[in-house]
Design a protein around this nucleic acid. Structure first.
Lengths: 207, 207
DNA sequence: ATTAGTATACCGACCGGGCGGTATGCTGTC
DNA sequence: GACAGCATACCGCCCGGTCGGTATACTAAT
């Protein structure tokens, strides 16, 4: 079986969890295999037993991150709302609250990796694109439903707005890293919230 | 004197220009000093004559990039407008049009570098923060002036909105790299434009 | 006008260390 | 006894950085 005691998952899982932490903090290129092994408490032999190359680990780590993020968001209470606009605004608020805590723990592995690898590691770029786009598409599903109800004539597409929400989040992370503080990211998500509310003329609905 | 014939600036300048191209394409960590020298057509001796370390080059390159960007934007025609709101909207439109061309040539060196170095190279983080914040502050000056004229009671601050414009741009670059296409970045800037127009109730003004 | 001194710009061989990756062996389980 | 799941030792390469040296130019004393 895969999972052991809570504190001692198998080497593969520990390597993936270590990859999330370390790569988000130091980037892909500056994270060495040895350091990953140290952080995971395993040896190099274990690493190359489970992953063909360092790039292979990055691809699996991208999947791992996306699955973890999807789990977090699917389980969040805002998803229970029946009104798609409530779900959308709940999502944005939820993302704003996620910013609490240390930066390496709440930023996006995909955005971090794709910045440094989009030219040099096409496979990583494609993996990051896939997960970001799938996540954006999930947001866009609620947007599309909300649009039918509250803004059917609007000139923007649900897909485009879904991607925009992700752009704001990614950009917010960049600024937060630059300023070494999550405050600016929180502010940015506030602007995103105001924009989306405006698009749906939120003032006509109860709040 | 510093400058030679147009095609043969001195080694230092050629290294800085090469740094802009290469680091924006491959990231800071994955760019080696040797490769920089090759790209600039100089030797390693020249590199370490002009820069103490690789990190030192990054700091100077950040200044170099910021100066170049500031020059581009200051010279743009939209800056001639007398109405600060026209300058602001002109700025956003200008940034949208800048997205044309190859990605490594139009993305932001500061955002790219700070993502990978914010934990490991504090000096680079500070330099990137400085230039991003200064640029945002420049945008915020027009925002503040426009706010006095068109939205004096608005609940958001000019500083916060200035930073938000930069977050959208940085995030747009991340998505463009992931999708290997500038189209998504253009769309994102379109959303930013719509948001800002909405904040200033643009529909009450001539267009 | 010559020379000596000094600073700048640049060259390229070289170095130690860390890198990604490999080869081989051990150990428990089915 | 086959095989998954590791551990350990090791390899060759490339990395950032050093260093001794050269070419050129400017300054100032003779």
């Amino acid at each position: 079986m895969k999972s052991q005691v809570a504190d001692h998952p198998d080497a593969r899982t520990r390597l993936l969890n270590a990859a999330l932490r370390v790569i988000r903090a130091k980037g892909y290129a500056d994270t060495s295999v040895d350091e990953l092994c140290r952080a995971a408490g395993v040896t190099k032999g274990a690493f190359f037993h489970h992953f063909k190359t360092k790039e292979d680990l990055a691809l699996v780590a991208a999947d791992h991150f996306a699955a973890m993020a999807a789990g977090l968001i699917t389980a969040a209470p805002f998803n229970q709302a029946s009104d798609p606009l409530d779900r959308l605004l709940g999502y944005i608020e939820f993302r704003g609250n996620m910013i609490r805590g240390e930066l390496p723990d709440c930023t996006c592995l995909l955005g971090t990796m794709v910045q440094e690898t989009y030219e040099t590691h096409p496979a990583i770029r494609v993996a990051c694109d896939k997960h970001i786009s799938e996540h954006a598409a999930g947001v866009a599903r609620d947007i599309a439903a909300a649009k039918v109800m509250y803004a059917p004539e609007a000139p923007w597409s649900a897909e485009s707005l879904g991607l925009f929400t992700q752009a704001v989040l990614q950009g917010a992370f960049v600024l937060a890293k630059a300023k070494n503080s999550a405050d600016v990211a929180f502010d940015c998500i506030g602007h995103l919230m105001r924009y989306v509310e405006g698009l749906f003329s939120k003032q006509t609905r109860a709040d």
